[in-house]
Design a protein around this nucleic acid. Structure first.
Lengths: 236, 236, 236, 236
DNA sequence: AATGAATGAGATTTCATTCAT
DNA sequence: CATGAATGAAATCTCATTCAT
């Protein structure tokens, strides 16, 4: 079986079941799949287990999904909302400065949201990475999700550069990919090891690195002692 | 088959073959494995193919390796030199300032070396990621390699902070993981897409981000206009 | 699985097993297949049964054959000698009349040989008809075998017409197909029903019809009373 | 599933649906079955496809037919009129010679009718051959149809022999089977290959062979040059 | 009746690993 | 040791038929 590109074929081509019972059954298979994939990973998940977990004859699986890949993609689509990389979508156009969200604040929120979402679905996210190495369709899905995110960040960086609050030496394309990768890889590695996962601290540190790397001002108390300023000779 | 921890068992336990012929055959299997893993990925590689590629009977494979995982690990060990995360190993303790390498320069060299090495072995590196999700031993190997690297970076950061040339607000542990992850993820994603891979530019940009994020001075022409300095109102 | 054209792909591409043991095993699988196909027909034959009959692990089947179709084709090739439609291959060029075989005699021999061979392998022959409706490759095999035979007959008919001993109104192409079909269909239908199969009588009658249809002289005792001559009023 | 004798069980046992709607639905299933069997052959036809083609729920199929075999048999019965082997049913008892149809003419008409009917339903006819090898009931149906035909021909041959216009050496039983087989096999093989199908010429040639084989006079112009006569040196 | 979902027996196929020669 | 055949545990997938709604 060549499963290298099933995921991309006709996304959403398969119509939902006609009856409520069918839709319920489909849903229970999806729920079961989420559980099994999270527990066993994609490669070790067996269709039989998914069907069993859904209390379904294993033939019924094929009423709704053609393959393990297909249900996995369906699962990812179901997760789309959560998975949709939560970029700084709340960037506000400043006109008056009153209501304006500081860039650092935007970054922090986005990173915190991302880490939180990743953490919540960590098992599936890890499986996603895994499947992306096996199935071209899933890889494409991942790349597309990633690209959308990267482009949003890229646009933000340009915006900040135009406003003179980000280092103009930074190439927005490279930076967007590097910084989003920094966060997602961090999330991945922290998930992989069962290390303590202190979202707040992680989000803060990642955001600090992110902001610093772009030369964006980070909040520090008055009389701040940041090297980045300190080293620049200044000092009040 | 439970392959979850074969790789780690008895690292290096198996002695090299006694005869020259045996060593040659073992080597040809390793070469074949490198080719097959690179072409097919780990999951799709078949021992049959490796043996065939090495012009060896299938049964002979087991004379030298106990499993697909074992030969993969052997392959990784073989690659150790190249794979050894090329961190700033040439960090020099400065005493006199004459011979001293600037931190940014160290970072740049390390990143360029890493990207180059990754690129050269990209297929195996991707397979490594893949296997790490399947086999605990390989995962451990990866984590250990990664940890060694991370610790080296962590130490460097502390060193720079102690010398007052890096932002003290940055947590070295988080930063080391985030920044190494940034680079390796960047390398991974650029490998995944067949995009042009301009190592020089990538290394520069990554190093710029890296240095900025730590508040380390980056080389710019005199009268430099960098926001990061500009914004600090300064200047020497 | 689309099995519609496996048989034709690379005839004889698969090399024979390297060892004597392997060749023995392959042969025992072929023998088992012959038995199973004969007993159950192609559609109902299971690979498991073939392997069991050959006292082999059922996975071993796949060491030698990729599918049920492939072993069937191998079986047909093995039967080629017997199956090779035994046309009037012993047609002798007459020079002196002494040694010459009468056309009717040639026809009779050929038909008797064909009926005998068909009867001996009747179960496989019936399976062949069956598979030919399912698999394009087998159908091609059958058509080719048939065509070779038809062409030989066609040539004979032309030869007889040229010598003035066969009805010139008969179209050799149509006649060759019709008459070979008459014999093979007769054989098939007699095999299908478990009717008594008196080869001698059948061969005689078929040959009589065959010869008559071409206007070829058939042997009858002196003072013969055959209508066919009688009606013609004659005779020398 | 043992399908070996479903077809023959209770022929016509199942009454037609009581309501007009039911009869319509049954008919649409039959039409769909004809299409699907013709396209996919019996073995590859799926009940699902038949139901889909008839725009019917799968479950409804079983309201009207118990199995694939049953609908196939029903289809054959529906075709009975066309399929009814179009023998020389218009054989006329000659008393006066006025209205009489020449034997050759009868044969020609029958063959032309048969070839035409076969051609029109060739796909189903081929499927019939296929199913006959799989299902005893269908095989019986086929044999019965065939037998009826053969017996009619046998009777004709005896009749002609009695009247002295057919070769008495020919055994009517063998000849009837051989000659009907000749025609049906010819039809089958011409259908299998997509060769040009010139019904007129084929019917003529088959009839010529048929008549010749029985020693029946074929129409030729006066001063005819046919070998069959020519060679007899004759004539009255 | 009609619908379409549910069922599960059954067949194929893969391939890592073992073993006889 | 080399060889390549043997093994069989798994896993997937099909689809005729049954059943709940």
């Amino acid at each position: 079986m060549d499963t290298s590109d099933l995921a991309g074929a006709d996304p959403e081509a398969r119509p939902l079941p006609a009856t409520a019972r069918g839709r319920r059954r489909r849903q229970s298979l999806l729920d079961a799949a989420r559980e099994v994939f999270a527990r066993d990973g994609f490669a070790n998940a067996r269709i039989t287990d998914i069907a069993d977990t859904a209390n379904t004859a294993h033939g019924s699986f094929y009423t709704y999904f053609a393959s393990k890949e297909e249900i996995f993609v369906a699962l990812l689509r179901e997760l789309e909302e959560e998975l949709r990389s939560p970029g700084p979508r709340d960037v506000q156009q400043d006109g008056d400065g009153s209501n304006r969200v500081e860039p650092y604040e935007q970054i922090l929120r986005a990173n915190r949201a991302y880490l939180t979402a990743y953490r919540k679905n960590r098992a599936i996210m890890v499986a996603w990475e895994q499947v992306a190495t096996l199935d071209a369709g899933v890889e494409r899905l991942r790349r597309e999700a990633s690209d959308r995110f990267v482009q949003r960040i890229e646009k933000s960086i340009r915006h900040w550069q135009d406003k003179g609050i980000a280092d103009p030496d930074v190439d927005p394309v490279y930076a967007a990919m590097a910084l989003t990768g920094m966060v997602s890889n961090f999330a991945y590695r922290w998930s992989a090891r069962d290390a303590d996962y202190e979202v707040g601290k992680a989000a803060e540190q990642l955001s600090l690195l992110w902001a610093n790397s772009l030369g964006i001002r980070t909040p520090r108390g008055p009389g701040e002692t940041s090297i980045s300023r300190g080293r620049s000779g200044r000092q009040d």
